Computed example of a mutant assay.
Amino acid sequence: MSQTVFCRKYQQELEALPFPPLPGAKGQEIQATVSKRAWEEWQALQTRLINEKHLNMLDPEAREYLMEQLERFLDNRETDQAEGYVPPER
């Protein structure tokens, strides 16, 4: 049986991440407070932002920008979106 976590984005018990997605304390915090579902959704948004905005992940400002967008996403605040992106219909 998989572990669960009270997800800060969805405010409910959901499947937990199997390991910290980032190194250090931030990764531990995310593993303890973010569900696998929310993290997968973040990864999709992150990929769109990196591609659309041509972010160089070696650039500290680009990494800082993505961390800011991550926090906004997890707190259910408005995030930047890739221009022209239309989410698939469910």
Rank of each mutant, 00 (worst) to 15 (best):
L66T: 02
F19K: 10
Q3G: 08
Q46L: 02
N76I: 09
L58E: 14
R90I: 14
T4C: 07
V5F: 04
N76G: 08
P23Y: 00
P60R: 07
H54K: 15
E78L: 15
T47P: 03
L45F: 02
P87Q: 06
S2Y: 09
P88I: 05
H54A: 12
Q43N: 09
Q46V: 02
L55S: 05
L55E: 05
R72Q: 13
I50E: 05
K36S: 11
E68T: 13
E29F: 04
E78H: 13
E64S: 15
E78G: 11
D75K: 14
G27M: 02
K53R: 15
M57N: 12
F73P: 03
V5D: 04
V34R: 00
A16T: 03
Y10P: 00
Y65T: 03
G27I: 00
L14Y: 01
T4I: 10
E41F: 02
R63N: 11
V5G: 03
T33Y: 00
N51W: 12
R63L: 12
K26V: 06
L66V: 05
F6T: 05
P23G: 07
Q69D: 07
T47C: 09
C7T: 01
A25K: 09
R77L: 15
Y10R: 08
D80I: 02
A62V: 03
N56G: 09
A38C: 04
M1H: 09
C7P: 01
M57P: 07
E40R: 12
Y85A: 14
E68D: 14
K9P: 00
N56K: 14
Q81R: 15
L70V: 00
F73S: 04
P23A: 08
R63A: 10
L58V: 08
G24I: 01
N76V: 09
P87H: 06
Y65K: 04
G84N: 11
